[in-house]
Design a protein around this nucleic acid. Structure first.
Length: 1029
RNA sequence: GGGCGAUUAGCUCAGUCGGUUAGAGCGCCACGCUUACAACGUGGAUGUCGGCGGUUCGAGUCCGUCAUCGCCCACCA
């Protein structure tokens, strides 16, 4: 026995009597995690003799500490990995963290500015990156320790970071291969530009939010209008400043046909629309028709002018721009024509490409206007907007202004408005890669659970939009490209002769060489006589994340780990990164390794606050799992989360501040959750929150944020602890031995049968990722069956030296199996009890004893003993439970004092009597009822019926004082039974039912009617007897 | 605009293949500290299963529709 365990044994005492009445989670957690680690239980190494089961962690961002969503994600992974480990799989859980490029750099930059008033340019690239590494070290440490305190059984030797040398090598090899395969290219494209962080961001990193704005109507003068032609074109915009970059005005090629089509569509929609929407559609329809008279003639004229190559004058810039013909201009919208700003709008960009328009970029990377806008240069966007509108107004070119709510694109990271900007970026060509990833799901090589999420995955991939992978940041994998403008191809061939780790081709516009290197760095003078310049940009974080399942296992090296553990088994993640991450892992795995990265993807629910909003740092409604563990324990956190993980529902979790002074719980509201300090309404003392920044706030004790929804799990843990204490306190004289099922009393055979069923249910639930189902099954069994019945009943047998040994063996065995089933959910508690049980009962089992494993986490997962399951035993035990329940109810209803004894008469058929007679002592201990005999009441004996079952009537001897009340109750009962019986009879008299419903259902109804009639007869009999004087 | 999910007790949620009188935890009421457990025990009260229509012998469950809430995708000069 290890030192840890023997010291523990001493502390526990010999018979468990000195164990505390409340489970001390803190002591157990520290003790057993260290024990597991010291034994190397979390380690997994390739072993051809065993089947692997692998999970790679979704690497948490090093931006900050873990929140409750991570706790859920990792709890579920640990449940799976512990379960599979116990099933005998060689179970590997690879841990690690993600550098989260843009997010982490943004956090560190923000802090740098707040605390030191410096920007990244004050530190320079190296300085800033060094700062971020410091930050990363601190938060990585904190994250890993949070995972450990949750009990996560990761193989910590294999901890990876997406920016570490192993992952970096994988990134470089992937980039190099993609480059050689021409699947990576550089091009000038319109991208989402974050002007605060000054980087491109992907569509996925953009969210839309309605903000109040305006619709401005401007007039662009027509150049040299001919008679009958309009003097100017009216255009509408929500972003006036972009007009400075306009290079055309578009009009539809056939405005009349377009209006016809629009009208037709609206008319059709109106036909099918529900009444409520009809007025709105009606109005739209009128509007379109009205346009025919109001706008159509002019649109036709403008179209003709466009075909003649006519121009309008762009005001303020005094630049002629062409009228063009393009179907993008919808006659049914706006003013019917549209200004084209190719460099600052995605749709206009497409128009610009079609018509080969100049693309005038008007923005600097920081969001100020550049040299292309003359006197507006240097203004920021709001300033420029104001000036442009004012200047146009002064020229009389503003027709009108309307208020309007605009769905404005914002950057996920900086929360500032996104500007579409034309820049040089790197892209991955998605066509073939996306198809591979789609096929993997459609043909079932990757299974997504719940299946409905496959739809979004496929829809997103089917767009096959190229993936912008460059980011103008400093924190990340630098793009391994060197530029050379001056060399010719011969120079390159000579310089890199014989090297297979260098590849090159020309830039899209042919102006320069792009040279890609697989490993290491290229010196500036790698090509004699020419100077190389390295690309400044870094790669999108998801580029390295996409490689995670194989890069963590050592790819591109053909490591034994890669060969053995890849493809991994299950990926557990949340739905918001199915496209960003899951899809990209699938395509990267297929491209690099030629095999899918995982067989199963399980998508778990999201944790929401009491208002149904997602939890986040910025909202201030986040919960730190450490706070929950501190208050309730790691096991309660885990069990509580698993219990709440159902198929379709997100987890709604109202949260409270806990006053650190008086433990009062203060419900968190939208209003109070962002305050730096709160005064407890109960004890009137102040405490600080996560928002505390001022020293005087920070000095206050912190009020943790917790949720009462973990109480159920905490109470359950305590219940398990006390049931275990009971077993441990009754181990004296325990002797392991063979037990034959035939010798066991009903309660033993019942609990063994239930144990088998529970074992099968829990196993099947886990196989289908039904975590809540598994947890509920264990909860109900442990509490309502093991504790409330089995333990209560076994107490009697433990007192009798004759029956004690067998009772002990079964009791110990049931606890043993239960602990193993619970162990993936509540590993600390299970281990604590397991070790105590091991010192008192090292040999145990049914029907034959065996030696208990040295830890529950490496014990064998139970298998259901089908031969223990007996529907007959279950039914027999249920009869006992029913009688017991009826007797208890009678006691409570009549407010009998606890010490009083019920006197019971049973009228029973022989078989029922045979069943109930052995239970006589239990009626006494569990219901305070003495069975006087198996007979009907004698004449004059005052009694009432408390239970009627098949072949059984249970009566209780009545006090004269209770007669009236009981009479009244029975009369009410009769009335209720009467209506039930009437309904039942009607149903059975209905020929449609009896002829069409399946025979067993009809028979069941008949039986049910018979039972009701018996109850009715019995109650009637009681009424008759009690009514007599 | 397209898609997904939800609506069951005061609150948070289960409810398997359509089949007895619809469940749990918390909260509430009554009684009880009985040597495993008051973080507990025993018992109780609480329901138009969102509305309407349909299929069916039978609907919380299946279909249609409406309402409300949440999420995702696309788009809006």
């Amino acid at each position: 026995m290890s030192q840890t365990a023997s010291r523990f044994e001493e502390a526990a005492g010999e018979d468990g009597r000195s164990l505390p009445k409340q489970y001390d989670h803190k002591a157990a957690e520290a003790r057993w995690y260290a024990f597991w680690e010291s034994r190397g239980y979390f380690h997994a190494d390739p072993d051809p003799g065993r089947e692997p089961y692998t999970i790679v962690i979704p690497p948490p961002n090093v931006t900050g500490a873990l929140h409750l969503g991570h706790a859920l994600n990792n709890t579920l992974q640990d449940v799976l990995i512990r379960w599979k480990r116990m099933q005998g799989y060689n179970a590997l859980w690879v841990p690690g963290t993600d550098h989260a490029g843009i997010a982490t750099q943004a956090v560190v930059e923000r802090r740098l500015l707040a605390e030191e008033g410096k920007t990244r340019h004050d530190l320079g690239r190296e300085g800033l990156v060094a700062r971020i590494w410091q930050w990363k070290d601190a938060y990585e440490g904190r994250i890993l320790s949070q995972l450990k305190s949750m009990g996560c059984s990761c193989d910590w030797r294999r901890t990876r970071f997406t920016l570490d040398p192993v992952c970096a090598r994988a990134v470089r090899h992937t980039f190099f291969r993609l480059f050689c395969d021409r699947l990576i290219y550089r091009g000038r494209r319109l991208v989402n530009w974050d002007t605060l962080l000054q980087t491109a961001v992907a569509d996925d990193e953009v969210f839309h939010e309605p903000v109040p704005g305006h619709f401005w109507y401007f007039r662009y003068p027509v150049i040299d209008p001919r008679p009958g032609e309009p003097q100017y074109v009216v255009l509408a915009t929500t972003r006036p400043e972009t007009m400075l970059g306009d290079t055309a005005v578009a009009v539809h090629p056939d405005p009349e046909a377009a209006l016809d089509a629009a009208e037709k569509e609206l008319a059709a929609r109106r036909e099918n629309a529900p009444e409520k929407e009809k007025p709105a559609l009606e109005a739209e329809l009128r509007e379109v028709r009205e346009r025919r008279t109001r706008l159509l003639p002019m649109l036709v004229k403008l179209r003709d002018m466009a075909l003649q190559g006519r121009c309008v004058m762009l005001p303020l810039q005094n630049r002629p721009i062409p009228l063009i013909v393009d179907a993008w201009a919808k006659p049914e919208m706006g003013t019917g024509c549209v200004k084209i700003t190719p460099a600052h709008d995605p749709n206009d960009y497409e128009v610009g490409l079609r018509h080969d328009l100049p693309m005038v970029n008007i923005l600097n990377p920081d969001g100020t206007l550049n040299e292309n806008v003359g006197k507006y240069q240097g203004l920021n966007i709001p300033q420029a907007r104001e000036r442009v509108v004012a200047d146009l107004q002064a020229l009389g070119l503003v027709e009108r202004i309307e208020d309007r709510l605009i769905e404005l694109a914002h950057s996920d990271r900086s929360k500032t408005p996104i500007e579409p900007l034309l820049t040089d970026q790197w892209f991955v060509r998605m066509e073939s890669l996306a198809q591979m990833a789609m096929d993997a799901v459609t043909d079932g090589r990757v299974r997504i659970t719940p299946a409905r999420y496959a739809q979004g995955y496929l829809a997103w991939l089917s767009e096959k939009r190229d993936w912008p992978i460059s980011r103008q940041l400093w924190w990340g994998h630098r793009i391994p490209i060197w530029y050379c403008d001056t060399a010719d191809e011969d120079d390159l061939r000579r310089a890199f002769a014989g090297r297979d780790d260098v590849a090159w081709h020309r830039d899209e516009d042919g102006s320069r060489w792009l040279i890609c290197l697989r490993d290491g760095e290229l010196p500036e003078d790698a090509i004699p006589g020419h100077t190389l310049r390295q690309e400044e940009d870094v790669l999108d974080t998801w580029f390295s994340s996409a490689l995670w399942p194989h890069s963590t296992l050592g790819w591109p090296e053909q490591t034994p780990e890669l060969a053995y553990f890849y493809p991994t088994s299950t990926l557990v993640t949340s739905r918001d990164i199915i496209t960003l991450w899951v899809a990209r892992m699938v395509l990267a795995g297929l491209y690099n390794v030629g095999e899918v990265p995982f067989r199963d993807v399980y998508i778990h629910p999201k944790i929401l606050d009491g208002y149904g909003e997602g939890m986040s740092k910025s909202k201030g409604n986040g919960v730190d799992p450490v706070d929950v563990m501190e208050k309730f324990g790691a096991d309660a956190l885990r069990f509580g989360l698993a219990y709440l993980t159902t198929e379709t529902q997100d987890i709604r979790m109202p949260v409270s501040f806990e006053c650190p002074h008086c433990e009062h719980l203060l419900e968190q509201t939208r209003e109070n959750r962002v305050r730096p300090r709160i005064t407890c309404p109960k004890c009137k003392q102040a405490f600080s929150t996560q928002w505390a920044e001022k020293p005087e706030d920070k000095a206050l004790p912190r009020g943790p944020v917790v949720s009462e929804r973990f109480e159920l799990a905490r109470n359950f843990c305590n219940k398990l602890w006390n049931a275990s204490r009971f077993v441990l306190m009754n181990l004296e004289g325990y002797q392991p031995g063979e037990t034959s099922p035939e010798d066991l009393p009903l309660e033993d055979r019942w609990i063994l049968g239930r144990l088998a069923t529970v074992t099968r249910t829990v196993t099947q639930s886990l196989e289908r990722f039904r975590f809540s189902e598994a947890a509920r099954c264990l909860y109900d069994f442990a509490w309502d069956e093991f504790c409330s019945f089995y333990v209560e009943m076994v107490k009697l047998r433990l007192q009798n030296p004759q029956t004690r040994p067998a009772a002990q063996r079964i009791l110990v065995h049931v606890l043993d199996v239960l602990l193993r089933l619970l162990s993936p959910f509540v590993p600390f508690l299970a281990e604590e009890v397991w070790q105590l049980l091991r010192s008192g009962a090292p040999l145990r089992g049914f029907p034959s004893p065996g030696e208990a494993a040295e830890s529950v986490m490496i014990a064998a997962w139970p298998t259901a003993r089908a031969e223990d399951e007996s529907a007959e035993n279950a039914a027999r035990f249920r009869r006992f439970q029913e009688v017991l329940g009826a007797l208890r109810e009678y006691r409570m209803r009549n407010g009998l004092p606890p010490a009083s004894q019920l006197q019971v008469l049973m009228a029973a058929e022989a078989s029922v009597r045979q069943l109930l007679e052995p239970m006589t002592p239990y009626f006494r201990t569990m219901a305070g009822a003495v069975v006087l005999g198996y007979r009907p009441p004698r004449p004059g004996e005052l009694a009432t019926v408390v239970h009627v079952g098949e072949g059984l009537e249970v009566r209780v001897i009545l006090d004269e004082a209770d007669r009236r009340r009981e009479l009244e109750r029975k009369r009410q009962e009769l009335a209720k039974l009467e209506s039930l019986i009437a309904a039942k009879r009607r149903k059975l008299a209905d020929e449609k039912f009896t002829s069409r419903a399946p025979a067993p259902v009809v028979e069941k109804e008949r039986e049910s009617l018979r039972a009701l009639e018996e109850q009715y007869a019995a109650a009637g009999d009681v009424v008759a007897r009690l009514s007599q004087t």
